[in-house]
Every structure is written in C-alpha cells, then in structure tokens.
C-alpha cells in the first residue's frame, strides 16, 4: 500500500508548503490540524502489513486525537482570545518563504541521497518529508513575528522529528512510547503557552515577539 502512504506524505508536504504561504492565523491552525492527522496516520499505514494489536490501534487513535484535534483546538482558542490582528506578520515575505520552502525540499532531497542510509523500500519520500517538515518548522519559527506562530513552528518541528523517527527505525513500539511522552509534553507546553501568551498580551497589548526584546536589561 505504498500508494496511499505516498499520498499521505504528499499531503504533508502540501501542508508544509501551504503553511509557509498562509497569511491568516486561523488558516495556519487548520493546516496544522490536517498535518497532525496525516503525520499520525503515517506509521499506521506503514504497519499495514505487519500485525497491529489492539493497544497499537488505541495508541494511534489517541495520537490523532491529540495532534489533530486537541492541540489545534487549543491553538484555535488562543487565536480567538488573544490575537487582535489575525494576520501572520512575516519577517521574511510570503514569496521569499515559498521559494525558501522549495530550497528546503531540494536540500532535503540531496541530503537524503547523500546520507546513504539503508532505508526500507519506499522510505525515501518519508525521510524527505520528515526533513522538510523539520526544517520548515524551524524556518517558520525564525521568520514570523507573532508568538503563536513560534508555537506552530515548534509543532511542525515536532512533527518532523516524529516522522524522522518513523523513517529511521524498524517498527518497534518502544519508539512510540517515547514519542507519546514527547507528545504529552508538547500538549502541556501548548497549554502553558496559552497562559503565557495571555499574560504577554496583558503586559504588552500585543503578542508580537519583538516586544519581548524590551525585557532585556
């Protein structure tokens, strides 16, 4: 069933690209929800041939729930509550961001080829997607002004790491246990972020990270 896996990976790449080009915070959150669901589907599809026991199924369902529903919902609420202007406010413009996205995927393709990893068949695209998602997450954190986009960038980074892990390991559930822990951390992180953002907004009337510069002595 590599066909469907490929399709899912392509959708992830699509979401990465769209996230670089989107100018509305809400749209960005929606894209992240889609990406979260797709990312959590990947290992399930890869294990299609192997036996998946009930625990695994439940585990993946929780995964989808957290990545695709819970975290986006929290972000959505944050956007609703605190962001007055719901625009992304890029430091690097959208056109340049899109082209940067192209460069990122190009470089990750080269990197994947250069690494000479012994990947299982059909995993090359997975690794490319993983590295692209990872780098694009970093890029998003770097190039956007609002605190909330930093969080979204961090989420994307985490998705990338998760995919990298999936690509590089043989199927063993221990990995997912670790991942699950990370995911819970992330969830807590997003919740805390919501509280902090609220406080930043109270203090500065905005959530622009440039204002944080004034905290230095």
């Amino acid at each position: 069933m590599t066909h469907i896996t490929d399709a899912v990976l392509v959708i992830i790449l699509l979401s990465v690209l769209l996230s670089l080009g989107s100018n509305r915070l809400k749209a960005l959150v929606e894209i992240m929800a889609l990406q979260g669901i797709m990312v959590s589907l990947v290992p399930l599809l890869l294990e299609y041939k192997a036996e998946v026991h009930h625990g695994g199924i439940i585990f993946f369902q929780i995964m989808i729930l957290i990545k695709g529903v819970l975290i986006p919902w929290l972000l959505y609420m944050a956007v609703q509550r605190i962001a007055i202007k719901r625009e992304v406010e890029p430091i690097i413009g959208y056109h340049a961001s899109l082209l940067a996205g192209l460069v990122v995927i190009f470089v990750s393709t080269i990197v994947t080829q250069k690494l000479h990893l012994t990947l299982a068949a059909g995993r090359e695209l997975l690794l490319i997607t993983a590295i692209t998602t990872l780098a694009a997450g970093l890029f998003l954190m770097m190039s956007r002004r609002k605190a909330i986009t930093q969080v979204i960038g961090y989420l994307m980074l985490e998705n990338g790491i998760y995919l990298t892990g999936t690509a590089l390991t043989k199927q063993s559930h221990t990995l997912y246990v670790v991942e699950f822990g990370v995911l819970l951390d992330l969830l807590v992180g997003v919740m805390i972020m919501g509280i902090i953002l609220h406080n930043i907004k109270d203090a500065f009337d905005d959530v622009d990270t440039t204002f944080l510069g004034s905290l230095k002595d």
Binding site: L14, L17, Y94, L98, G101, I105
Partner: peptide
Amino acid sequence: ILTSFALVTFA
C-alpha cells in the same frame, strides 16, 4: 500563484 508554482516544483 507562487504557491501553485511551488507545489508543482515540489513534485
């Protein structure tokens, strides 16, 4: 439009 360009270039 650039987004559409980027999509195909990805592919």
